[in-house]
Simulated assay, not measured.
Amino acid sequence: MKNFETRLKGGHPNSLGNTIVVVEEVLNEPTHFDELFNCYFSEDEIVRLRVSNAMKRICKEKPSCLIPYIDRFITEISLIDQASTKWTIAQLFEYLDTDLSPQQYASAKSIIKRNLEIESDWIVLINSMQTLAKWSKKDEELAQWLMPHLERLSKDSRKSVSKQALKFAQHNSG
């Protein structure tokens, strides 16, 4: 056991801590992925934040590590009430979209749509818009659902959110 949870604790909440070292260990020895994944269930929100960061990094380098866990991201991780988990879910589903079964795609789409509707964190909103906008290019029903939400978010008081919503709305209507 690598004690990933202990090693991901502490330090400034916005720092990576030991995340990069843990990612390298998992990439070099993928059998340790399960231990890292289970750190999502830590009581420590900093650990969960760093696990999310690690998942994104691992997914970019070795998506095959995450593919067997897609259902668990859908059924378990999506229920974690933490912004970093929600924005990471949107990113991971976008990265893994060609690996999603039709049922997994439908579930992932539902999760991200819900997050776009009810969440207020700007990073969750931007990542959710990005994934849904990409998917809506091949999913007309999603494109129709998404436009009113992009219009709503284009009026958001946060420039980062409103600018992205306008950008995605222009790309989707064009």
Results as ranks from 00 to 15, higher is better:
M129G: 06
L8Q: 03
P30H: 00
D34N: 14
L125H: 07
T31V: 13
C39V: 00
S173F: 13
D99A: 15
R7C: 06
K2I: 07
H171I: 09
K113N: 08
F93M: 15
L36W: 02
R48E: 01
E35K: 04
E94M: 15
R7M: 11
G17H: 02
V161G: 01
W145D: 00
N127L: 05
T31F: 12
R57A: 10
R72F: 14
I123N: 02
Y95S: 08
Q170I: 00
Q144C: 11
L92K: 11
K62T: 01
L142V: 08
C59W: 04
P30Q: 00
L166A: 01
T31W: 11
R152K: 12
K62C: 02
I80T: 11
A165V: 05
K134Q: 11
E24S: 12
R152I: 07
S101K: 14
L36T: 01
E25M: 08
Q103N: 06
Q144I: 14
G10T: 09
I118K: 15
D81I: 12
A169S: 11
K56S: 08
W135D: 07
K137T: 06
T131H: 06
R114K: 07
E61C: 07
E119Q: 13
L116W: 02
G17R: 08
N3D: 08
E45Y: 12
R114H: 09
Q91T: 13
A133F: 00
K155H: 08
L49W: 09
I111A: 09
E140H: 15
N14H: 14
K167G: 00
A165D: 08
T31S: 13
S110C: 02
N3P: 04
N18W: 13
